[in-house]
Design a protein around this nucleic acid. Structure first.
Lengths: 222, 222
DNA sequence: AATAAAAGTGAGTACTTACTCACGATCTTG
DNA sequence: CAAGATCGTGAGTAAGTACTCACTTTTATT
């Protein structure tokens, strides 16, 4: 357990240093193909022969680089999970509090924009992550740990800071964070998965959603 | 396509009339076992032999009742999808507008409570639904159709009604519906999946979440 | 009680699965 | 350039896989 924990923590540290492992050409092809098919059909429904074929590689080559099929999945899902929460680990994230963001909504807008762009640039990887996390206990633990120990912990401090300034209402920080996350994740899922045809301006939509989040949907006569 | 559409529409009508098909003992056992394992390991990772074993039934028996494994999945996921949106189809749903609910938040509270209870009573089925919908095009189409033609359409009318009364702000109804849905679905996922240990009072939590939804998270000095 | 229909069985089938391994090709390093 | 390590291969394997079918057992109908 503690080994696991250290593993993704090291991975996070490595990420901030921009240290990528050297991959051979064929290995890159394998990863590319695996991501493509995992995202489309799911991990369990994907065969290694299919991956090999799409990658233009012999099946044995896959197992030279990855002990098992599951190992291949983890080497895809692990890093993306780390990258997803990486910004919250940044050393200056806590300092975000008193430096660039004087207003709470500016802060939320900034985070939302950044993570939405990230999601758009890594759609397939995030699809894989969402789908396979519930079935891979190790991934599940990793995600839970990251969300509670990094994201929730950091966000809690930020929310408390804005509460002290009277910019946010006096409610349990976790509920505020949960609500904000729900709103934006719901927005992403709705527009990316449910209505991908219907085009919209990301920044504009974020602003409108942020408005609802900050001031609610209640009208004057409520 | 139109045949498909009629299929789940008929299913919905049947549901309102409480018409359940007669099942044999072993068939019930098969469904029970399949739901259990599908929810735990996912459809693709589940073998028919495993289902048969858990159901205490010969493997051939499964295929007497269901042509294929996929057929078995659809006969589980289809009905639960229908039941999930069924309340929105109720004839009196539109009338909900001028009869029992004078206040918008009472309406939202009522819907949230009802569907949360439904989700709690059908946790495994909903898990299966969420997980397999993206991979089964037919299910995907069914869900999209239901969400747009039934849920969204009805909710739009209700929101517009409350907007006319000045109880809700003048924003696009779909965005208001999306925000409300995101908040409550986020609440459910958070408490059911991410923090199942941490016990909480459903109705109380719904009220607090509804508060945030109605009035936002912005403080006095914002 | 006789007959038909439906439910249940489990051995069998054709095929796919993840993974191995002995061997040749390519790269790295002295 | 020699030698060892790493990379790449594809035929091969044992263990499933979803599904079938001739058969027996149970249930429904007359």
């Amino acid at each position: 357990m503690s080994e696991r924990k250290e593993q993704w923590l090291e991975e996070l540290i490595r990420l901030t240093e921009g240290d990528e492992k050297k991959k051979t050409d064929k290995q890159a092809k394998i990863l590319e193909a695996a991501i493509e098919i995992f995202a489309e059909k799911g991990f369990a429904a994907t065969s290694t022969s299919e991956i090999a074929q799409k990658a233009g590689v012999a099946e044995g080559t896959i197992f030279r680089h990855y002990k098992t099929k599951k190992d291949l999945l983890l080497s895809i899902a692990g890093p993306i999970a780390s990258k997803l929460v990486a910004p919250f680990l940044a050393r200056d994230f806590a300092k975000v509090i008193d430096l660039p963001y004087e207003k709470a909504d500016d802060f939320f807008r900034s985070v939302a924009r950044d993570r939405l762009r990230f999601a758009r640039n890594n759609e397939k990887l995030i699809r894989i992550l969402i789908h396979e996390v519930p079935f891979q206990p190790e991934l599940m633990e990793q995600m839970k740990a990251m969300l509670t120990e990094i994201v929730a912990a950091r966000m809690k401090r930020v929310v408390e800071h804005f509460q002290n300034q009277g910019q946010l209402i006096e409610a349990p920080p976790w509920r505020i964070v949960r609500s904000a996350a729900s709103m934006f994740i719901g927005m992403i899922i709705f527009h990316v998965i449910l209505a991908p045809d219907f085009p919209f301006d990301d920044d504009e939509e974020i602003d409108r959603t942020l408005d609802l989040l900050m001031h609610g949907i209640s009208g004057r006569k409520a």
